[in-house]
């Protein structure tokens, strides 16, 4: 119970810090809107390809916009954490008698909040431009929960980068690491229509399975055979990354 209370204090502090930087929030929402603008309208013709699974390209794209936003949020997380390490704020927390785990929880919880805010904002933009969610309200909720978990998992990657390297250079450029995770997917084109090494690489990327599941819920509804693999991959990846982040964090703070 004490851990929960302590992590709430730290979470509220992190939340205030985030809200005190409105540019970051506006940029997050704006980047999603820009995705639709750049890729949605101009690439609309792709739906005409034989075998393309959706009639509405904007709807097809929505999963990509959401997943990409949460994947790259891992890099933001790394920067947020590194800023606190560099300023000595993390030391200040470590000097207090709070449980180390509370600090970690408060940090991961803000990652989750940022992911939720971003996903909800994208869903609002999507609805505004006429995307229909075939999975219904439950589908929307499932998408929010799943991608938030993905956001936390990516936040863990960010945390490991920040704690391990403690380097601004590396952390600022950590988006490079997230790029293959986000782009080696069927984000723009279904896997069946992709060929060669790219198709092979896509098959190895865990984010791909999560993306497919999210997209299925959006464009087809509850088609379990496309959702279940993504569900397990998400669960497995999150468990491994949260475990690793906890380990790295303990190592760094002891």
């Amino acid at each position: 119970m004490l851990i929960l209370r302590e992590s709430t204090y730290i979470y509220v502090r992190n939340l205030k810090t985030w809200l005190a930087q409105p540019t970051m929030i506006v940029a997050a929402v704006l980047s999603s809107a820009v995705m639709y603008l750049f890729f949605g309208e101009p690439l609309r013709g792709i739906t005409g390809l034989p075998g393309f699974p959706a009639a509405d390209y904007q709807a097809f794209l929505t999963a990509m916009v959401i997943v990409m936003a949460v994947v790259f949020s891992g890099s933001d997380m790394a920067m947020v954490l590194l800023t606190d390490i560099m300023s000595g704020y993390v030391d200040k927390l470590l000097l207090s008698p709070v449980n180390r785990f509370s600090i970690l929880l408060g940090t991961l919880a803000i990652g989750a909040t940022r992911a939720i805010a971003q996903v909800v904002a994208i869903i609002l933009v999507a609805t505004a431009i006429g995307v229909r969610f075939e999975g219904g309200v439950l589908g929307i909720l499932a998408v929010i929960v799943a991608t938030t978990l993905l956001g936390v998992a990516m936040g863990c990657v960010g945390l490991i980068i920040a704690v391990r390297t403690r380097s601004v250079q590396v952390t600022v450029n950590s988006w490079l690491l997230f790029m293959p995770l986000a782009f080696l997917t069927s984000a723009f084109m279904p896997r069946e229509l992709i060929t060669g090494w790219f198709q092979f690489a896509v098959g190895l990327n865990p984010v791909e399975y999560i993306l497919v599941a999210v997209r299925t819920v959006i464009i087809d509804g509850w088609v379990w055979e496309h959702i279940v693999p993504g569900f397990w991959v998400l669960l497995g990846t999150s468990a491994v990354l949260i475990g690793l982040a906890t380990y790295e964090y303990r190592r760094a703070t002891n």
Binding site: E6, R13, K16, S87, G88, Y89, V90, K92, L95, S96
Partner: peptide, 25 residues
């Protein structure tokens, strides 16, 4: 403890920082 590298939270208000500090203890 007050360390040389200070470790203050620039985005936080002075009073909020103190209250949080107290709550953490």
């Amino acid at each position: 403890v007050a360390l040389q590298e200070v470790g203050l939270d620039d985005l936080s208000k002075g009073r909020d920082f103190l209250v949080l500090q107290g709550r953490l203890y």
